[in-house]
Amino acid sequence: MRLSEPRLLIDINHVAVLGGIEERGGALRIGALARHSEVGASPLVARLAPLVHQAIPHIAHPAIRNRGTFGGSLAHADPAAELPACAVALDAVLLLASRRGERKVAARDFFRGIYATALAPDEIVTAIEIPPAPAGGRSVFLELARRRGDYAIAGLAAAARPGDLRLVFFGVGDRPIEAKAATAALQREPAAGRVAAAQAALARDLDPPGDLQADGATKLHLARVLLGRAAAALAA
């Protein structure tokens, strides 16, 4: 249907070094070619990056999860996709390679806008490294989509480590957005009223553009609902 007309298509499926899921140097390393279904079924991912494990079932449908890759989702950088938000929430690092060599870019610096990333034209994502979830860590993944598997109207990837909380929203901006004002409000003392305060503060973090499913105000409302639910789940 000519939605995309590439002049050249290179099949990288046979490049073995791009695959695999392993624990390396204390971090979880997921190869760019790892399929969503493989990531979702990995006990290693479930243990070291439970947020990713929780997110995988929200990605499209089994047929797509059997083909779609971890690196592909990150490089595509759809602002409503699940894995970019997880990568940011987990302080992941992307490994990029070109003929010029390899480099590492933090996920929070990688996403630059709608389908826009820090990748140079001659670069590919080779793997992602995720710091392992610490003891006592919690994570919550929430997504609102019209149908199971659709892109999110609003979504939230939340990772709590002792002394640290990350709330990364997706589907509500041009890239995954870390809600710093809401996070600060949620961590303030005393606890009473802080969820409402965080929900109010979210307006400082997010200014969602409208899309076919909802206008910006509706998306902000839905993000606030997700924030409240995540806070309740993290506190439970």
């Binding site: 609102l144 499913q213 206008d215 409302h221």
Partner: peptide
């Protein structure tokens, strides 16, 4: 009956 229309009816947005 989309979520957006139902929320509007509820006065939530």
């Amino acid at each position: 009956f989309t979520p957006a229309r139902i929320l509007r009816a509820l006065g939530r947005t």
